[in-house]
Design a protein around this nucleic acid. Structure first.
Length: 686
DNA sequence: GTTGAGCGTT
């Protein structure tokens, strides 16, 4: 078939202009419809024509169209070449008609080219990048006419790819993968540089690009799941759609063609797949597109939202970009939830600094962290407003808190700009983390004290029968107690602290009496920090930070359960003191239900009363308790002032009596409340 | 306008 060979060598590097172009478009469109049916996209038609005009050889055209037409690409191009070889004069003015047997310069080049070349390059490009796709299509005709400049083939290839990148900047089409990107490599890399932007109907790229994006995304999606697979990318790609084409309906065939991706696009896809593979190797990259980024800064600026960016590897399923903010909140939440265990690893990781800073340094990092803390709130609250300046950094922080190790590795290969801005805060968090002590750190003491404590608790259990009875007056309270009891045992078994579990089974009904309710807790406070803050008064068994289930953020209150009831009582002395630069409200956990039982013998302060409630709610109960609670009642009246006063001159007041009653040396050290030496102290001394 | 009344969770 010599004639066929001859046709195959043809290129149609012609200026299809005016009516000719329209006619050709029409014809091509019809033909394409035979293959693609309603899926035929006008832009694809235009794309075909541009291929011709750029002097694509037949095989090249097949390759390029293969992405969109799949198997049909060959037959279509065959048809096209045949058709053009005999009918080219239908579409091109005869004087411009110039069919070339080999790849040489086209005739149309100088006839119309130069003049419109300028226009195309400068004005048109700037314009079209801003115009919508529809307008592209509409203007295409004219553009084609104008863009009659056909530079040497290779260069035009380059141009397209450049346009591709360029336009995707503004169109914000997200995950565009610059279809021609790799092709330019394939064609002739050395010719890449000279031409910056010699526009060649860039608008034609949009639709193909969209299609290609899907292909690439499929490819990427596949390769992402097969993380460690070393098999050739083409193989993986094939697995996207496993069916073989055979005699499937047109539509399905087309879909397949996207995924099957034979040799031509293989280079593109391969590059993508390789990039994807790199991503999985690098472990940190949140997204394949992150790695694809170098060629497409669009993603950098648009799609890679901070949260998405920072999402840790195990959050791979968040790859959908819609999630970043959720991720943020989640990590924040987890950070609190993880409280002990997870952060513990981090501590171990940086153990040199650990444990060193304790009580005294507490205040320091608390103050520091307070700064961060505000941001914390910002994130969780105004998470959706991306305009918030602090968001980025804070998100980073959370991941620090969540998984420090990951961030450290990430730091290495991430753009330092963001990191740099946040490094200070990160350090703060790290300090926070470092001050944490592993759960067992107090076990030695616990064990040693355990004997005495056991007895103590037993007696306490007996002593608290009265409390229990008091609870029993209220049915609801009893129910709560039981539930908590169970919870206790569970919790203890998890912690594998056997002795305490024993204690609990004995004293669990008194859990409430050993528990304090701390409110006005800083949102950034963790179980650990609270535990450390309160364990001055005795072993802290459990700290529960009350979280708002809806928002996932802390509600600013916490339950601190001590091993001993006395410790809880003493801990009440921290009421009105500063913790993380917030004035704590420390009260006993209430026994009485809030709303269900307004039925009390003595007159109660109405629940609606915002201020008095917390304070007075305890009063009636305390009245029923002999001894232990009494001293605190007067303190409550002027809690803050009293605390300050005591801190300053250590007055042997009721509070001091209460404090010294159980001889916890740390009780006196309340003087460390130095954060806000305000008017309070003076006011009450009078 | 640098959240802030309140009693949860396993």
């Amino acid at each position: 078939m010599g004639s066929v060979d001859r046709v195959d060598d043809l290129t149609f590097k012609v200026n299809f202009s005016g009516d000719g172009a329209a006619k050709l478009k029409d014809r091509v469109n019809k033909k394409l419809k035979e293959f693609m049916g309603d899926y035929t996209d006008d832009t694809l038609v235009e794309y075909v024509i541009v291929l011709l005009r750029n002097g694509r050889r037949k095989d090249e055209a097949m390759n390029e169209l293969n992405v969109f037409l799949g198997d049909d690409s060959d037959s279509f191009v065959n048809w096209l070449w045949d058709h053009l070889s005999s009918n080219l004069d239908l579409y091109v003015p005869s004087q411009e008609l110039h069919v070339e047997g080999a790849r040489t310069t086209a005739l149309g080049n100088h006839s119309i080219g130069t003049g419109s070349h300028q226009l195309d390059t400068d004005s048109e490009q700037g314009k079209t990048t801003k115009v919508s796709r529809n307008r592209h299509n509409r203007e295409w005709k004219g553009l084609i006419r104008d863009a009659a400049e056909p530079p040497p083939l290779q260069r035009s290839v380059v141009e397209i790819s450049r346009f591709e990148e360029k336009s995707s900047h503004k169109v914000n089409n997200g995950r565009s993968t610059s279809p021609r990107h790799s092709q330019k490599k394939r064609s002739r890399p050395d010719e890449r540089q000279p031409i910056k932007r010699e526009a060649v109907s860039q608008m034609n790229i949009d639709a193909p690009r969209r299609l290609l994006q899907f292909a690439v995304r499929d490819a990427v999606g596949t390769s992402r799941t097969t993380v460690s697979s070393k098999e050739p990318s083409s193989k993986r790609l094939r697995s996207v759609v496993s069916t073989t084409s055979g005699d499937l309906p047109v539509h399905r065939r087309r879909i397949q063609s996207v995924a099957r991706v034979p040799n031509p696009m293989a280079s593109v896809i391969k590059a993508v797949a390789e990039a994807a593979e790199d991503v999985t190797k690098v472990k940190n990259a949140g997204s394949v597109f992150d790695r694809l980024g170098p060629g497409m800064d669009v993603l950098e600026s648009h799609d890679l939202l901070p949260g998405f960016r920072e999402s840790s590897p195990e959050d791979e399923e968040y790859g959908d970009i819609d999630q970043p903010l959720e991720t943020t909140d989640l990590s924040y939440y987890q950070r609190n939830q993880y409280g002990g265990q997870h952060v513990g690893n981090i501590t171990a990781l940086e153990s040199e600094t650990g444990l060193a800073s304790d009580y005294l340094s507490d205040n320091e990092w608390y103050d520091d962290l307070d700064v961060v803390g505000h941001g914390v709130m910002d994130v969780s609250r105004t998470g959706t407003s991306s305009g918030n300046k602090g968001d980025n950094s804070l998100i980073v922080q959370y991941n620090v808190a969540k998984d420090n190790e990951i961030l450290q590795t990430r730091n290495k290969d991430q753009n330092q700009s963001t990191i740099e801005a946040n490094s200070r805060k990160i350090v703060n968090i790290s300090v926070n983390v470092n001050t944490w002590k592993p759960p067992h750190y107090q076990e030695p003491r616990e064990v040693s004290e355990l004997e005495s404590r056991k007895s103590l608790l037993e007696s306490e259990a007996a002593a608290n029968r009265s409390n229990v009875r008091l609870e029993n007056d209220n049915p609801v309270a009893v129910g709560n107690g039981n539930v908590k009891n169970a919870a206790y045992n569970q919790d203890m078994s998890q912690k594998a602290v056997q002795p305490s579990s024993v204690l609990h089974s004995a004293g669990s009904p008194n859990a409430d009496s050993r528990t304090i309710f701390v409110s006005n807790v800083h949102f950034a406070a963790t179980k650990d920090s609270l535990s450390r803050h309160f364990n001055k008064f005795g072993e802290v068994l459990k700290v529960v930070i009350v979280m708002d289930a809806a928002t996932g953020q802390p509600k600013g209150s916490a339950y601190v359960e001590f091993m001993q009831k006395e410790a809880a009582d003493n801990a009440l002395s921290l009421d009105g003191t500063s913790f993380m630069s917030r004035i704590l409200k420390v009260v006993k956990k209430t026994f009485a239900p809030q709303e269900a039982a307004p039925v009390m013998t003595w007159p109660r302060v109405a629940r609606g009363s915002p201020f008095a409630a917390a304070r007075f709610a305890r009063a009636p109960f305390a009245r029923g308790i002999p001894g232990a609670f009494r001293p605190h009642i007067p303190i409550k009246a002027g809690a803050r002032s009293f605390q300050w006063k005591r801190g300053v001159q250590a007055t042997p007041s009721d509070a001091a009596v209460a404090a010294s009653k159980f001889t916890y040396p740390t009780t006196r050290s309340l003087t460390y409340i130095r954060t806000e030496p305000k008017l309070e102290g003076n006011a009450t001394t009078s």
